[in-house]
């Protein structure tokens, strides 16, 4: 409803909203880049090219590259099962998927420590086989899988429920194989929501801090992801270095917002 914007009350509300957004959203974003470039472009590049920071970038990208496709497959399978069939426990399943979303990241890290840690449920057995999960890259990947597990599914479920299965039924009755139906009918129907879910998964996987800091061991140049590296630099009183590292993640955040904007337009 493009209502009257001329009333005094309306103008006051708009002004208040814009002012609050300026203080709580725009200024913080501006500060990140202003601080990262506080000592000039050369210092910025030097900060990013620090070996430890570069390794953190590598580890962060590696985590996202594994986590995003795996959770896309999980998200599609879950949404397909929940939106296309009726079975006992279906509603329960929809709520249970949300668990990782509602759990504190520290608790997420802790439950993994109690599974794969030295005193954990599986840790000692795995260790006797020579498999070390905790305080290494696999642990970082596992907790990242946990915290981002719901993102794709929660984008797809409402969409696939709303779309119904008429398109797929038509394709099947015309003789398409199940795989053809999925690739040529389902996938095109859900692609924007799927992409959006993947974008959200990526942002969270790259930015996860609490859960990763419990299980990674934060070994400099080995198991430090970018968010952990930011904390390390900050604790070393290297604020410009911390902001340089933070600016890369902030850029990804801005890209996420732009992609979301574009994907929503496409979806309409």
């Amino acid at each position: 409803m493009p209502a009257a914007t001329d009333g005094l009350g309306a103008r006051l509300l708009i002004a208040a909203a814009l002012l609050i957004a300026l203080v709580t959203l725009v200024v913080p974003l501006a500060l990140i880049f202003a601080s990262a470039f506080a000592e000039g472009w050369a210092a910025y590049v030097a900060n990013i090219m620090q070996p430890d920071t570069l390794h953190a970038v590598f580890l962060t990208v590696l985590t996202a590259v594994i986590v995003v496709p795996v959770n896309m497959v999980f998200g599609i399978a879950t949404a397909w099962a929940v939106a296309r069939y009726d079975f006992p426990g279906r509603k329960l399943m929809i709520s249970l998927i949300e668990i990782p979303f509602s759990v504190s990241p520290i608790v997420a890290g802790t439950i993994y420590l109690f599974l794969y840690g030295q005193q954990g449920l599986l840790g000692p057995t795995l260790q006797s086989w020579g498999v070390q999960v905790m305080f290494s890259v696999p642990a970082i990947v596992l907790v990242s899988l946990f915290v981002t597990a719901p993102f794709v599914a929660r984008e797809l479920i409402p969409l696939m429920q709303a779309q119904g299965s008429e398109d797929e039924e038509a394709a099947l009755s015309l003789g398409a194989s199940p795989w053809q139906t999925f690739r040529l009918v389902t996938l095109p129907n859900i692609r924007w929501a799927l992409l959006y879910g993947a974008v959200l998964t990526n942002a969270r996987a790259m930015g996860e801090f609490g859960a990763v800091s419990v299980v990674s061991g934060s070994i400099r140049g080995q198991t430090n992801t970018l968010p952990l590296q930011i904390e390390l630099l900050f604790n070393d009183f290297n604020v410009v270095g911390a902001f340089a590292a933070a600016s890369t993640l902030a850029l990804i955040a801005v890209a996420t917002l732009v992609l979301k904007f574009l994907l929503e337009r496409h979806a309409q």
């Binding site: 493009p2 309306a10 959203l25 930015g207 930011i230 902030a250 955040a253």
Partner: peptide, 29 residues
């Protein structure tokens, strides 16, 4: 939802910033 004003779309997009921005970056900022 109720008004049309310059910057509305930008505000709509920016509202999601806290979800997109890693918490460590938010804390540092």
């Amino acid at each position: 939802t109720r008004y049309r004003f310059p910057g509305r779309r930008l505000l709509d997009a920016l509202v999601d910033l806290p979800f997109a921005l890693p918490t460590a970056v938010a804390g540092l900022t």
